[in-house]
Simulated scan of single mutants.
Amino acid sequence: MSNVLLNRMKSARHVSGKKQQDWSQDAFTLTTRLLQVNPEFYTIWNYRRNILTKGIFHNSSPEAINHILTDELAMTMSALKSHPKVYWIWNHRRWCLENIPNGPGKQQEADFVGWKQIAWSKELFVVEKMLDSDARNFQAWDYRRYVLAGMPTPRPESAELVYTSRKIEANFSNFSAWHQRSKTLTSLWEHGKLDEAKSREQEFELLRNAMYTDPNDQSVWIYHRWLVGTDGSAELLEREIAAIQELLDEQPDSKWCVESIIRYKHLLLKKSSSADVKALSEECRGLLGRLQEIDPLRRRRYQDLELEL
């Protein structure tokens, strides 16, 4: 059976007008069987879409096409349960969503909900279930951003802020949730939908709680660097250095505390008067020496950083 299918694949890949191209239901069924064995075979996914668009869809009504694509989404959902990080499965779901007809009929009322809107709304629920199973699945997070951007009726960005808060509170180590939060906040700030100064302070408060909960969590510190960069003023840098120093006093072996203080002092160097530069440089050198003791495996990296001062 597989050899038969592979022979069909070879002919289907040459779409330059060969008469032997097979867009039949039988060929479609064979692609299902092969993809159940190997969902990473992207050529089969491409062939499957060709069968749909060049064969099955031609004699199908919009309602029938909607049913077919709904079945496709169900098929890929089953595949994702066993292979949640295979890109080609997520890619096929994208294609299905983009090809669902608008129907049924013409919009008559303001609260009209067609097939497309139902499918996209349901998809957001599906991806949330996937993230409940694995909150760090970067493919699922990327797909979530795709769904949010493409929904016929946009979802309020404030709701996404609530969603990321829930994910972060469940696990401070969820870098994907922090990343999604940074994108959401940036958009809200740019469109004037959120008080930037006030919300930034709220974010720093959230981060301090996370830092004290687990000072060695990389995700928290990376987000902190992004947040500091949204302001970057000398006053803010000095404040955050002082706050991190307090934590370092309690956690003297925290590599991330020391690295962050060095980073922010280095930024201060660019904003300081010549009288302060020498003192800040010496402080950074001392901290880099301390890092070499805390993290000897990266000693050469810290030595190179010292040469830049």
Rank of each mutant, 00 (worst) to 15 (best):
M211D: 08
I262E: 11
G229W: 13
L280P: 02
L227A: 04
R225Y: 11
V258T: 02
P296L: 05
T186M: 14
L185M: 13
L247I: 07
L206P: 10
L268H: 03
K198E: 07
A234C: 05
K198N: 01
S260C: 01
L194W: 06
H191A: 10
N216T: 04
A242D: 01
V277N: 05
G289V: 10
K193G: 14
L247S: 06
E235N: 06
L280R: 15
L236F: 00
V258Y: 03
A234K: 11
W221Y: 03
A279I: 13
L194R: 09
C284L: 06
A242G: 00
D217E: 14
R239Y: 00
P296S: 01
E293K: 15
K271E: 00
E238C: 08
Y223D: 04
N216Q: 10
K278Q: 14
Q251G: 00
E205G: 10
A242N: 03
Y212A: 12
N209V: 12
C284A: 13
G229A: 08
E205F: 11
R285S: 06
A279K: 15
R263P: 08
E238T: 11
I294T: 02
G286D: 11
S254C: 14
E259W: 02
E246Y: 15
Y223Q: 05
I261V: 11
L185K: 14
C257P: 07
S274G: 00
Q245H: 02
N216Y: 08
P215N: 05
K193R: 15
A279T: 11
Y223M: 09
R200Y: 00
N216K: 15
L248C: 08
D276F: 03
R239I: 00
L280N: 07
P296M: 05
K278R: 13
R208E: 15
Q218G: 04
P296C: 06
W256C: 05
K198Y: 00
E235H: 09
V277D: 03
S254E: 11
L267D: 14
P252S: 01
F204C: 00
Q245P: 01
D214M: 12
L248D: 08
R225A: 12
Q218A: 14
L268A: 04
E235G: 00
D217C: 15
S254M: 10
L227W: 02
Y212S: 12
E240I: 01
Q218T: 12
L185Y: 07
W256D: 07
A242W: 01
V258A: 04
E203K: 05
S233V: 07
L237P: 08
R200T: 01
S272K: 10
I244E: 10
A243V: 07
L206W: 12
Q245S: 13
C284D: 03
D195C: 09
E250T: 07
L207M: 08
D217F: 03
Q245I: 01
S274H: 03
S281N: 14
L237W: 09
V220N: 02
A243S: 07
F204I: 01
L269Q: 13
C257L: 10
Q202K: 14
E201I: 09
V258C: 06
L287Q: 01
T186D: 12
P252K: 05
I262W: 08
L185I: 13
K270Y: 11
R285W: 04
S254R: 12
T230H: 11
V258P: 04
E246Q: 15
S199C: 04
